[in-house]
Structures are given as C-alpha cells and as structure tokens.
Design a protein around this nucleic acid. Sequence first.
DNA 1: TCTGGGGTCCTAGGACCC
DNA 2: TCTGGGGTCCTAGGACCC
Length: 425
Amino acid sequence: MFALVDCNNFYASCERVFNPALRLRPVVVLSNNDGCIIARSEEAKALGIQMGMPEFKCRPLLKQHEVAVFSSNYALYGDMSSRVMMTLAAIAPEIEVYSIDEAFLDMTSFARFDLTEYGRLIRRTVRQHTGIPVCVGMAPTKTLAKIANRLAKKNPHYQGVCVLASHAEIQAALERTKVEDIWGIGRQWSKVLQAKRIESAADLAAAPAAWVQKHLHIVGARIQAELLGKSCLPMELVRPAKQSICTSRSFGRIVTDLEELQQAVATFAGKCAVKLRKENSLASLLTVFIATSPFDESCKRYWGTRTASLPYPTSDSVAILQAAQTMLDGIFRAGMSYKKAGVIVSGIVPQASCSTTLSLFAEEAPAAPERDGRIMQVMDAINKRYGSGAVRLAAENSESWKPHQERLSARYTTQWDDIIEVKLK
DNA sequence: TCTGGGGTCCTAGGACCC
DNA sequence: TCTGGGGTCCTAGGACCC
C-alpha cells in the first residue's frame, strides 16, 4: 500500500498558520512578480477565482470579497514544507518527498493496522506539529493513491482520509474519476482519450492495452497498469541529483538596457551556482535566455537563447557568471523590450566523481581550483550565517529589474528580523 | 499598468561506430 | 541481379508534473 499525503491549499495554508486572523477570510497567493493566482483557500475557490488567473483580471472580485492577497514567500513555504516532511518521516518508516506539498509513504508494513485510523493519525499529527491541514489517500499503487487523495479532498464525508483497498472500492473510485483528473494525463492526452470515448478512469483501465501503448506510449501504458492495481512506480527514497538547474524571473518593468540585463543575468547565474553547490554538483553546460513579453502585442517578439559548454565542469560563481555574460552579449538585440531572462546549468556531474579533466582548448587551466572552491565555501558559509545576499559578486544587482513583491508576508520561521517587525506592528 | 517558475521523461531522427 | 545487423550518442520537440 502507498499513502499520498498532500497539503491542502499549501501556500494559502502557510500564510494562515502565522496569521490566525486569516482563518475566516478567503486567501490567495500570487506567483512571482505578483502575476497570477497560484494558490487559493477553499473560500477563494468558492468565489470562483481560478487557478493561474492573472491577478489584474480578478482584482475587482478580490477587492469586493476582501480577499487576503499575498506575494509568494518561498522562504516560508520551503521551511514549512520541511517541517511537514520531518513530521511524516517520524510517523512512517519510508517516505518519498514528491513535491513541496506532497509525500508518498510506504504503508506495506502497516497492513495489520486500520489504515483509515492511521490516516487520521497522520492528519492530526501534521496539523498539531505544523498547523498545516493535509489529506491522505491510500491504495495499492501510487496512481490509485493519487485518486484516493483527490476523493478525500473533494468529499467532506471522508474527513480527509480515503483508503481504496478492495477491488470494489477501487472500481467505484475509477468510475467517479474523470480521465483528465488522473495523475499523468494532461490536456493533450485527455483530448486523445475523449475522442476515443474514454472518459473515466474506469474506461481507461478497461481500454485495449495495445491502443493505449500505441497512442500514449509507455507512460500511458504504465498509468493503465497502475489503475488496474499493478504497481509500476516504486518508492524513490533518495532524491536523485538534479539534471538541470534553472533560475529565471520576469522583470518588474520593461528592460531595454544591456547593462540592466547584465545585472539580471549575473544575479541568475550567481543563484544557479549557489544551487549547484548545494547539490554538491558541477555543471558542464550553460544556457542563457532573454525574452520579450508574449502578451504585449505592441512590441516585437523576441526569444534569444544560447547554450555553450563550459571549459570544465564547475560550480564556481565567477566562472559561471563570466561565461553567462559573454553569452548574453551574443543574444542581446538592441531596441527590444525585455520582460524576462534566465540562466540554466545542465550537463550536471557529481562533484566527488569529477577528477577535473582539463579542457584541451581552454586557454588556461582552472586557476587553482582548490582555492576557488575555498572562496565559494566561505561565501556560502557567510550567507548561511548572515542571510543569503550578505556577500555576493559585485555584478549581481537587482535594483532596476526587481520583480514586484508588494504583498510579502514575514519569513516567520527563518528570519529573526522579520518576527521582530511583526511584533512591532 | 498588469499574465510564474522549475523540473522530468519519452520518442524520433540523424550521425556516427564496428 | 544482388548491398547487413547491431549498436550508441545527441538533439529537438512534445508530453507531463507541481
């Protein structure tokens, strides 16, 4: 048996934990740059506020119903997530952290317990330890556990816990689940399936396997097998190292200057390097992109991107930043109204395995790599102690292009200064 | 005025190897 | 007259996830 524990309206719930006055108000959380709605409390959903809707389009509605609106506060959500995961890890022997607000638990060794009761215990414990409400779905495969979780969320009579164990329970759940609500079936595949009159999860389970394999390939075949109770997706207890790391942002305003783009790209490159070092990894490929707004009809559209290999795998901020600047020069077009930029590092190898193979063509060997490594270690240590950004490269600067973040709540769990400010208010 | 960010996996086709 | 069989690696594009 697998359990899927999924936090309810996670970002909105995080905001509520430290601000009890919000408990009776609808709450929404915005994407970066305060652009779109990416989380909604139940009350906000009931008002008809759609997921992914641009904030400016539902502003009247938000105002009319006195919805509490927040910028995303990833310092808070990330920390609350790790509290939830630590609580779960203490309850169940094996846990797979699937996303910021979800985890699979291996329930195999719990067969002799009443699973519904155990699900309730999980809910109570997480709520008590973190203040975050969760729902629990249990079933013999991950895909079915997802379906169980969804039912637990949608139907109050489950009281947050839905266990699908018997064949009859599973069949009934499949019949109640639309094909587009199955984990792994997105918009495109839903269309393909609906055209074939496959409308419910039960229909997909019963569809001819060869047809599924042909049109939905191996991934679809796996989903079908999982619906039929054959587990194809095992627990992944150790998160594999990332294959690529991306840092990108939309700008708070239009940027036309190369110099301002350089500052943005430098900042993103620096962040990528920090993330790489956190993963104990080195990157061998670097991508830089700059883009105009896809929505602004009045400006010329442009998407400039370039990928190049680094002379040797590195996580050194200076090396990555310098390479990124050179690539930016290559894709910059004057006279464009830029709205977004980003840096991606890929070709990632673990730091430990890398015995620094020198480039045949590099003009110089990595300048005393052990020294560079030490500088980065010191930088990371200072930033860990005094807050990220305490020391940074001079080229990193977010003054001009900084995304909007006008309704940011306090970083209640990671910044003393923020708590003091809250008290003073 | 105003529209997010960060990932993964799979397939097909081309270039190449012996 | 007639032209094999078995691979790998890389990339682009398309699908999906939260």
